[in-house]
């Protein structure tokens, strides 16, 4: 079954914290194949991770 965007966004988030199981990977991939919104949010979550690390490493004023 294809998960909703809400479920897909949880899987996309968890992907940053642990390895997804085969069924989780399949259901996320199936969803992303048809959902431009979640593909966009997925890229944005990756950007957030990059941004937090850059923010952490900024030189203090």
């Amino acid at each position: 079954m294809i998960p909703s965007c809400k479920k897909a966004s949880l899987l996309q988030s968890m992907q940053q914290d642990r390895a997804l199981g085969p069924l989780e990977r399949l259901s996320l991939a199936t969803h992303l194949a048809i959902c431009v919104r979640c593909r966009r949010v997925g890229r944005q979550l990756e950007f957030l991770r990059l941004a937090v690390r850059r923010f952490r490493d900024l030189d203090p004023p």
């Binding site: 909703s4 809400k6 919104r37």
Partner: peptide, 15 residues
């Protein structure tokens, strides 16, 4: 139904 309420906007070159 679990869909995004607002269509997520494209962040054009957020870097």
């Amino acid at each position: 139904d679990g869909h995004w309420r607002e269509f997520p906007q494209d962040w054009d070159n957020p870097e």
